[in-house]
Design a protein around this nucleic acid. Structure first.
Length: 573
RNA sequence: GGCGGUGUAGCUCAGUGGUUAGAGCAGCGGCUUCAUAAGCCGCGUGUCGGGGGUUCAAGUCCCUCCACCGCUACCA
């Protein structure tokens, strides 16, 4: 039977994440997973931090703490944000702490090497004898051979924008200590991507179905593909496996190589913890698995080209991605999120003032699915007030407070003689409704969010058309049937919204007098006349209260002003 | 420079080559009063960035120009 293995891009453990990351790779995945689970699918959701690489070592040294402490700190900070947003993984780990990670990464290297998909190349690189390490391009500075600018970076000249090779500097200097680095020869292993492409990957990619924003990009990549180095001269990372032919001293796997293997090693960790150490194979080596990678667009080459090439090159029976629903980028009020320039939303402050569930909904309904989009404070206000508070929140209170007042807090039953007619009106005359899950399965989360609101509006129209406040005086029996019908529909709304706003959905469910989980009965079938009521009649309502407080203009204006202030302070303007 | 993307209603955006191009928000008018001053109904002549082309048919495909944006892969 089909099972779904869902991953979100491993966040890099060198800083906090912002809403752009959240909406790109995490929130859609969480909603996808929750929806499929309610539909009875078998799903595993894997994530954790990516903890190796030069950026980590630089960051840790700057902060004066050990590498493991540094990544542990960010692993924790990032997880805290995910917790606040209600993102729930089956396993959350990290590439430097997952017990299975190093061995599995080495196993990948060994198999790929054994299958002759690795090349060895000797190159010259700058080596700083003071710091006793090879220098990445950007950590070399010197005089631009093209325009003579004296503080050019090793990768690019900031003045003439020319691409540079630090070996071309006549006066290279180590950016860390200022001393003059020397040239040294070093050997590295390269993944022979052209070979994998010709043998398999090219055909697989052109025969695969991709999101439009992914397909053209990846096809293009195929043409210019080159062998990629998969080793580095540094200490922080997974050492090359013992027994590898050649000089492996001081070399580790390049971070991009070991990072995606984290998806697999974390799955192994999950299985081991569950006491079924071999269970991970069912997920990674069985043709019934549908592997779905949620990522931002910057990760497309890795997940559509490089990682599939790695999986194939092991010749070890791994499944390849089924879908890669990559998102574009998410900005903030017209500009890129930038911590250094103060163009951010500090999440501590945000969660102190705003509802994380409302944020989930707004993020999803503004997600950059087809093109870049943005967080806009006024849109957030409008979404919260008009869609969540008015369309959904008010629907719940207007109906349930009425029930509370006139039926002593118990949901009335629908009289059999009223059913057919009320349902004819509800299903035929109150506007279109649909199944949000259909859009979720198609990775159209904005549309799914919209559908949820449309479905709630159906009940508002029904209430207006039925006018139970008038019936209460003229035909109380019919009024009871109307309210019963409304309450049942609200039960559907609660279940439809469970993947989007799990806590709010549960709150509505409890207001309807239910004590089990809103997800307990699974995903609702599309309601249809005659057979859709799930029997809420008779239930004693829980306390009915507003679900979504409104956000006023002053508050939003203050947020925008604070954003401008932070930006000015950070850039010294 | 190279590659890619975007440009549709005041704003944010949907729109497999096929009826008079749509939604939400904002705005205007009316109805209603159960509810978080909430709800419902009605109201859009938009150079689909400009120009050219292919086609019976183009927002949709091709060329070109303009504007904005991203990436360019040894710091993911």
């Amino acid at each position: 039977m089909t099972r779904y293995l869902v991953t979100s891009a491993l966040p890099y453990a060198n800083g906090p994440i912002h809403f752009g990351h959240v909406v790109g790779a995490y929130l859609p995945a969480d909603v996808y997973v929750r929806t499929l689970r309610m539909q009875g699918e078998e799903v595993l959701y894997v994530c954790g931090t990516d903890e190796h690489g030069v950026a980590i070592t630089i960051g840790a040294e700057k902060d004066g703490i050990a590498y493991p402490d540094y990544v542990a700190r960010w692993r924790g900070v990032i997880k805290e944000t995910f917790d606040r947003l209600g993102l729930e993984f089956d396993i959350w780990s990290g590439t430097s702490v997952c017990p299975q990670h190093a061995a599995l990464s080495q196993d990948f290297f060994r198999r790929i090497d054994g299958n002759s998909y690795l090349l060895q190349r000797e190159t010259e690189q700058l080596y700083c004898t003071t710091d006793a390490k090879f220098l990445a391009d950007r950590y070399v500075t010197g005089t631009c051979p093209s325009c003579g600018y004296e503080a050019a970076r090793g990768d690019e000249c900031p003045r003439c924008a020319k691409w540079l090779n630090p070996l071309d500097f006549a006066d290279p200097r180590c950016k860390v200590c200022g001393s003059r680095p020397e040239r040294r020869r070093t050997t590295h292993w390269y993944l022979d991507l052209p070979k994998v492409r010709d043998e398999f990957l090219g055909g697989w990619i052109s025969g695969h179905e991709w999101k439009p924003n992914v397909g053209t990009f990846v096809e293009n990549q195929m043409k210019e593909i080159e062998p990629r180095p998969i080793t580095r001269d540094m200490s922080w990372g997974v050492p090359l496996p013992a027994g590898t032919r050649g000089d492996i001293a001081g070399k580790v796997l390049y971070v991009w190589f070991d990072a995606p293997i984290g998806y697999v090693s974390f799955t192994q960790e999950w299985a081991a913890r569950a006491g079924r150490p071999d269970d991970w194979k069912r997920w990674w080596k069985d043709a019934d698995t549908r592997l779905v990678h949620f990522i931002g667009k910057d990760n497309i080459p890795f997940h559509c080209v490089v990682f599939p090439a790695m999986l194939y090159a092991t010749k070890d029976g791994y499944v390849l991605p089924w879908h890669v629903p990559a998102n574009e980028f998410y900005n903030l009020q017209g500009r890129k999120f930038s911590t250094s320039q103060g163009w951010t939303i500090p999440l501590d402050e945000f969660f102190a003032r705003y509802d994380a569930q409302a944020a989930r909904f707004y993020l999803l309904s503004s997600a950059p699915e087809t093109k870049d989009s943005e967080w806009n404070w006024k849109d957030f206000q409008s979404c919260n007030n008009a869609q969540l508070a008015d369309a959904i929140g008010n629907l719940v209170t207007r109906v349930l407070k009425f029930v509370d007042k006139h039926y002593a807090g118990h949901i009335p039953a629908c009289a059999p003689e009223h059913e057919a007619e009320l349902e004819r009106v509800l299903f035929g005359e109150c506007g279109a409704f649909g199944d949000p899950a259909e859009h979720v399965r198609a990775f159209k989360f904005r549309r799914a969010a919209e559908q949820l609101i449309e479905n709630a509006r159906v009940a508002n129209v029904f209430v207006d058309r039925s006018a139970p406040w008038s019936l209460q005086k003229t035909d109380p029996a019919r009024a009871a049937s109307v309210l019963s019908t409304c309450a049942e529909w609200i039960g559907y709304v609660a279940r439809w919204m469970a993947p989007f706003m799990p806590h709010k959905a549960q709150a509505i469910w409890e207001m309807l007098g239910q004590s089990d989980a809103v997800t307990a009965r699974g995903w609702p079938q599309r309601p249809a006349p005659g057979a859709w009521r799930i029997g809420l009649a008779g239930a004693k309502l829980g306390p009915v209260a507003g679900l979504f407080p409104k956000l006023d203009d002053k508050q939003i204006a203050a947020e925008i002003a604070a954003l401008e202030e932070r930006s000015k302070a950070a850039t010294g303007a």
